[in-house]
Computed example of a mutant assay.
Amino acid sequence: MVTRRRMLAGLAAASLLPSAGWSSVGTPDYLSAARAPNGSYLLAGLTATGEITFTIPLPARGHAAAAHPVRAEAVAFARRPGTFALVMDCRDGTVLKTLTAPEGRHFYGHGAFSADGSTLFTSENDYEAGEGIIGLWDVTQNYTRIGEFSSGGIGPHDIKLLPDGQSLVVANGGIETHPDMGRSKLNIPVMQPNLSYISLAGGVLEQVELTASLHKNSIRHLAVRQDGTVAFAMQWQGSKSEAPPLLGLHQRGETPHLLSAPEAAHRAMQGYAGSVAFGGEGMLVAITSPRGNQTQVFWIDRRELLVSQTLEDVCGISTAPTGFFLTTGTGLVGRFRANKRQHPLQWDNHLIAITSQA
């Protein structure tokens, strides 16, 4: 039995083992986009002790990145409604390829590689049709665009490869947008978010929707546990007086479980979960809120809050063997409930773990 005291101690002590496949660039454990003091943008590699191992310039604000499972190579995505994604050799900062969303499309800031690294999947918006698309890029042919299929909904944001290596899970946020309208949300009264499981060939295997009363709860970000459990973080688009759950757990073939902290702590999240991650050897799940300056950690089996922490502009979160690693818009980097390094950077929303052992 893991006690509360032992678990809290583990949160402060956690770190990730280095990934040998990335040793040529200082063995980073994470990737994150950031903004420099001069207003320029970059992608950085971070170790589990908060050290920066490399930085690569970006032409505009980044959002998330995808780490190649074998090579020290990453794809950095523009923030919605951006149309660029840069394939970068992280050893020397060389831009190997600039991916441009097809005409009539934009990226949503996320992507995922196949298990062998041969294919890149990107979440995209066909904004004239108002439909979500998953783009396919052949990595072995210099990231040539080779196809696409439906995301199973509107506004696909985050996308993850499932542990079976044969399917994807997509967070269809349900929000229709158009680049001519900037970041405006065009269909809030009728939005219908869903969680879609899709084969790598493009067939929808399963879809999960929330109850009608929660149709304004946009499913945005994902984390996947080794047993295939999916955690999804949500952002409420309804009245500020309402405070629906912002965290869900799902396994295929089952009903989703929604989790919330006690009311006062839950309302401190201000209806916005920015990132989500598993931790504590898969026994914990956590969400962050940069609006509320909150990180909340939940026991999965008990489906209850374990601990919360107030930290200004916290958003990036990723897994560690027994805990979590965080970044903030104020430049802090470090383990949950432990001392953190300060960098002269504004870390963006997401912290991507490099999990390759190659």
Rank of each mutant, 00 (worst) to 15 (best):
T83Q: 13
E73F: 04
D92N: 15
L96T: 03
V75L: 02
R61H: 05
T53C: 06
E73L: 15
A65G: 01
A66S: 13
F84L: 14
V70Y: 14
A66I: 10
A78D: 15
T83G: 00
A101W: 09
A65N: 06
L86H: 13
P57L: 06
R61G: 00
I56V: 15
R79M: 13
H106Y: 15
H63Q: 13
I52Q: 08
R91K: 14
H63S: 05
P57K: 09
R71M: 12
H106Q: 01
A74W: 07
R61D: 03
D92Y: 03
R79T: 12
G62L: 07
T94K: 14
D89H: 11
P59S: 01
F107V: 01
A85K: 06
R80L: 10
D92S: 11
A64Y: 09
G82F: 12
E73M: 15
A60S: 14
V95D: 00
A66L: 09
I52D: 04
D89E: 09
E73Y: 02
E103P: 04
K97S: 06
A60N: 14
V70T: 14
P59K: 06
G62E: 11
L96Q: 12
R80V: 06
A78R: 02
I56P: 01
E103N: 08
P69W: 04
F84V: 10
E103V: 11
A72V: 07
A60M: 11
P57F: 11
V87R: 12
M88S: 15
G104S: 03
H106S: 12
A72F: 00
D92P: 03
I56A: 15
A67K: 04
F77Q: 04
A60Y: 01
T53K: 05
A74G: 05
A101K: 04
G82P: 07
A76W: 08
E73S: 06
F107E: 01
H63N: 13
I52S: 01
L58Q: 12
F107G: 08
A64G: 12
V70L: 15
D92E: 10
A72K: 04
I56M: 10
T53E: 07
L99C: 09
A72T: 11
A85F: 00
R79A: 09
L99F: 06
H63Y: 13
P69C: 08
D92K: 12
T100I: 13
G104N: 07
I56H: 13
A101T: 04
T100L: 14
R71Y: 10
L96R: 14
F54Q: 08
G104W: 09
T94M: 03
R79G: 02
F84D: 01
H63M: 09
A65D: 05
T94F: 03
A85W: 12
P57Q: 02
H63L: 13
F54V: 07
L86S: 11
